[in-house]
Nucleic acid binder design. Structure first.
Length: 261
DNA sequence: ATGGCGGGTCTAACCCGA
């Protein structure tokens, strides 16, 4: 089973890149983030024609996640609310950042973690709160789904080797100690980084700023991840970043990351 | 480098991302 995660920075602007990539890389499930479109306007038919069923959870202009699956998914859940309840979920689900589904007993959690803007801002505090809600959400899911895959755009680089230049990273959003601690608390539930099972190199990135020729100079960050529960981690066969779509004209600033289970 | 690019939409003296 192959599962990919890709922040596409608008599915409508990236439609040809995504359909082209799926044609070349027929993964079982593609997890999308930042679709930036309401469900009624999501371009479903190009994916149906490719043999993929879209499960979408979007909003206008910002955020938005989707699962594209070759086989029907079981128990698709939108947002935190179905697991966390209305009291916690309703407010956080105003931003569409979470969608889950089950394929062959593997529970796939697709996340778009808040960016956080800048250290100490309201958005930064929201990001930290969001991660505490995520921890409780995944704790409950793990109790019922021992085969759990949590992937997406985490907007956090856990280690200095995941950043091209970690100088000053403690004041830089995506790399502060508070963010790393919050994500580590999530992973301490029993989730491990699939990419690092296979690759210990530095200079391995999944996002490059559009500015300053960052991609050409490989000035990037590794912030898109696949985290696996122990049963899946032991069985994982490969995990790799595909930089090819980032070389195209008008690319997303993120590259897809593929894990094979 | 409180913003170089590139999404979005209230097409801007806009907002937001990472």
């Amino acid at each position: 089973m192959k599962i990919a995660t890709w922040n596409v920075n608008s599915i409508r602007s990236r439609l040809e890149h995504v359909t082209g990539w799926l044609g070349q890389n027929p993964v079982d499930v593609l997890c999308l983030q930042e679709t930036k479109v309401v469900d009624a306007d999501f371009p479903r038919s190009p994916f149906i024609e490719l043999g993929y069923q879209p499960y979408i959870y979007g909003q206008k202009s910002y955020n938005g996640v989707a699962l594209l699956s070759r086989a029907p998914l079981d128990a698709v859940r939108m947002g935190f609310t179905p697991i966390a309840g209305e009291a916690i979920g309703a407010a956080f689900d105003e931003q569409k950042r979470v969608i889950t589904g089950i394929l062959d007993g593997v529970c796939i959690v697709n996340l778009y973690v808040p960016n956080g803007s800048s250290l100490g801002s309201d958005k930064y505090l929201y990001k930290l709160s969001w991660l505490t809600v995520l921890r409780n959400y995944l704790k409950t899911l793990l109790e019922n789904h021992p085969k759990l895959l949590v992937c997406g755009d985490f907007n956090i680089a856990l280690e200095d080797r995941d950043i091209h230049d970690p100088t000053g990273r403690e004041r830089q959003v995506m790399a502060t100690d508070a963010e790393r601690t919050a994500l580590s608390a999530v992973l301490d539930l029993g989730l491990a980084d699939a990419f690092r099972k296979f690759n210990q190199e530095d200079g391995q990135f999944s996002w490059w700023d559009y500015r300053a020729a960052a991609f050409r100079r490989n000035l990037g960050w590794r912030i898109d991840h696949h985290y696996l529960s122990p049963a899946l981690y032991a069985a994982a066969k490969s995990c790799a970043i595909d930089k090819t779509p980032r070389t195209l004209e008008k690319p997303s600033d993120h590259a897809p990351v593929v894990v094979e289970l």
